[in-house]
Structures are given as structure tokens and as C-alpha cells.
Simulated assay, not measured.
Amino acid sequence: MPDEAPTCFLCDRPLGQKVQWHHIVPKSRGGRETAPVHPICHKTIHATLTNKQLERDCASAEALRAHPELAKFVDWVSSKEPDFHAPTRRRKA
């Protein structure tokens, strides 16, 4: 049985040609562990949550997917190709 393709930490889709590495707990907050993500998923995580929120509330894939804005994003992106890209909106200040 062949190995399964690696998947994105956020959306769980197969990874494409471009892969970024997300610090599960932000590096600025002492995090060292990273997980592979699509560029669009990585941008969406950081456009939606502050480093403090990531450290405090969203230090797992399950917690990220449970966040209302990220859950909506994951639902939308789930049918897209692995290398799909679109502009990412920044969080409102």
C-alpha cells in the first residue's frame, strides 16, 4: 500500500507544489514545532488570528478548525486544488 500524500495542518487537503511551515505556537512566543500548510491556509491563519490568540486558543489543528472564521474558510477551500491560490484578506484592526 503506497504512503498517503502529506496533508495540510489546517484544511487537511493534500499538499501541492508550494508548502509553507506554520509554527503551531508562534516562534515569537517560544514555539518550535512546525506543521506543513498550503500558502493560502498559512496566510489565512495569520490574517485571522494574532500570535497571542494562536498561542492561547489555537495551538492544535482541531482548535484552528473550530474557530468560526477558519471553519468557514476550510469549508470554502476544501473543494479547491492543492495549488489553488487567491488573495487573502487581512483581519480588521
Rank of each mutant, 00 (worst) to 15 (best):
M1G: 15
E4N: 13
E4W: 10
A5M: 12
A5F: 08
F9A: 02
L10F: 05
L10Y: 02
C11Y: 04
C11W: 03
D12E: 13
D12R: 13
R13W: 00
P14N: 13
G16R: 12
G16T: 09
Q17I: 15
Q17K: 15
K18Q: 14
K18I: 15
K18G: 05
Q20E: 15
H22M: 04
H22P: 01
H23L: 00
I24R: 01
V25I: 14
P26W: 04
P26I: 06
K27F: 02
K27L: 03
K27I: 00
S28L: 02
R29H: 08
R29W: 03
R32I: 01
E33K: 07
E33V: 12
I40D: 01
I40C: 07
I40F: 05
C41W: 02
H42W: 02
K43F: 05
K43H: 08
T44Y: 01
I45H: 01
I45T: 04
H46M: 06
A47V: 09
T48N: 05
T48R: 09
T50A: 10
K52V: 15
Q53I: 12
Q53W: 04
Q53M: 14
Q53G: 06
E55A: 11
D57G: 15
D57P: 05
C58S: 05
C58L: 08
A59E: 01
A63R: 07
A63F: 00
A66V: 06
A66R: 13
A66H: 06
A66Q: 11
H67K: 08
H67M: 07
P68S: 12
E69M: 14
E69I: 14
A71L: 08
K72A: 14
V74F: 01
D75G: 09
V77A: 03
S78F: 07
S78K: 13
S79T: 14
K80E: 10
P82Q: 13
P82T: 14
D83W: 10
D83F: 10
F84N: 10
F84D: 07
H85Y: 14
H85K: 14
H85T: 15
A86C: 11
T88Q: 08
T88S: 09
R89M: 11
K92H: 12
